[in-house]
Each structure stands twice: as C-alpha cells, then as structure tokens.
Design a protein around this nucleic acid. Sequence first.
DNA 1: CAGTATCCTTTACGATACTG
DNA 2: CAGTATCGTAAAGGATACTG
Lengths: 122, 122
Amino acid sequence: MKDVGHCPLQCEKINSVLSRIGDRWSILVMIALKGRQVMRFNELKRHLGITQRMLSLTLRELERDGLVNRTAYATVPPTVEYELTDLGQSFAETIGVMGEWAVEHLAEIDRARAEYDRRNAA
Amino acid sequence: MKDVGHCPLQCEKINSVLSRIGDRWSILVMIALKGRQVMRFNELKRHLGITQRMLSLTLRELERDGLVNRTAYATVPPTVEYELTDLGQSFAETIGVMGEWAVEHLAEIDRARAEYDRRNAA
DNA sequence: CAGTATCCTTTACGATACTG
DNA sequence: CAGTATCGTAAAGGATACTG
C-alpha cells in the first residue's frame, strides 16, 4: 500500500499487517489451522472451499511471513503438512478476539444495515 | 463472498465481518476516529491520505453498518462531523488488540520474510 | 466544505489444464 | 497428492472534473 500520511505509529503497523494478511483467505486459513493443529493441502482446500491456486499462493505468503510451517514428506504421492508457527499461533489468538466480537455483535450490524437501507429506500 | 464450505460458526462470522470492514480504509478510518473522537470529512481525508471517493464510500458503509455516526450542520459551506458509535467504539477496541500485536511482532514477520527470501534466492 | 460522476488501471480471484 | 501455468473476469481503488 502507499503512504498513509499523518497516521500515528500504531496505525502504520496495523496497515503493514493488513497489507500482509488483509485478504480473506489468509485469515481463514489461519483459523482452520488454529482449530485443527495440522492439515494437509487438499484437506485445507476441501475445508475452506478455496481454489488450488489461491490456497497455494496464500500458504506460500503465510510461510514467508513466518506464520505457518510447511513440512513435506518424500512419499509417493507427496504428503505436505501445514501448521501454525508460534508466531502464527499468537496472531491467531488476536484473530480469535475479533471472532468473538463478530459472534457477539454481527446481529447489531445487520440490524443497523437493515434500518439504514429502510431509511434510504427510494 | 461465497460459501465458505465446512468452516465452523466463528469462521463464518469472522468472514462476514471481514467482508464488511476487511478493506484497509475502513479500519484506518476507525482508528483515526478512535483517537480523535470527532473529525470532519476533509480532516479525515488529509489525515489518512485517502482520496475523496474512497473516503466517501468508506464512511457511507461504516455509517450503514452502524459503526460511525454522521452529523451534518446546515452551515455554508457545509460542516459534517463523523464519530464512532458505541458499536464502532467497541469494534475499535478489538482492532486495538490487533494493533498491539502488530507493534509487538511486525519485526518478527519482517525477519521471517527476509530469511525466506534469502533461502529462496535463485 | 463535502461530496458525486466518470474514466481508467491495477489487483484479486476463479476456472481450467497440466506435472513431478 | 500437491502443486504450477495460463487465461479471463470482476472488483478495488486512484485521478480528475464537476456541484450544491
């Protein structure tokens, strides 16, 4: 992303994090790994309903950022397992906080949205 | 977004929230409002380095979701103030948790990334 | 000042086909 | 099984010009 202007420090940092895991898939992959500990490629694919391409790209980025660990076994056919690193685990906790908020307040958002739409109905 | 397959409840909720405020600007706007309480349109624009178009769209969505309040005064030229609602304030707290994580661990991500790149340097 | 309208570019993502 | 490569589409977002 580009320059964020006069934002405070924390703002820039959040921005950096969001630039990295701000896409929907990264977070969903981490949530999946958080609950299941270790998962294989196609297991994740089926679980999330993600395409091979996006899962491949997403996992590579998460690995690059030190959030997930990739372990390949030299079997035929190949076996590859993914799991959260300690860093990834710690971030997943943070996501969990947001998840709890979501579960608690999503209905309120829906209500607000419905009312807004009702008010602005042409 | 589309079907998330066999994700647990929390996963779907998180996904819903991310679909709403998952873009970079929504979160940055909320952070700005969190710190400053009340801000006017152009004040936010200058503060964030966002384009008029994106700020306008972002604020409307946040208002629609019940996260920010918009108050227009019938002055000439017009004065419009934005602030977080209680719901928005509560969500901003959640963002704050992520912000703290970011401040604490961003350097680790950078290290991991640098090392990954070094290992995979052709 | 606080927007809206239009255009255009970039990015994200899916679909599909192929491979060690 | 676990990917990569290629292609096409749709959405996000910036630049610019205009308005009550």
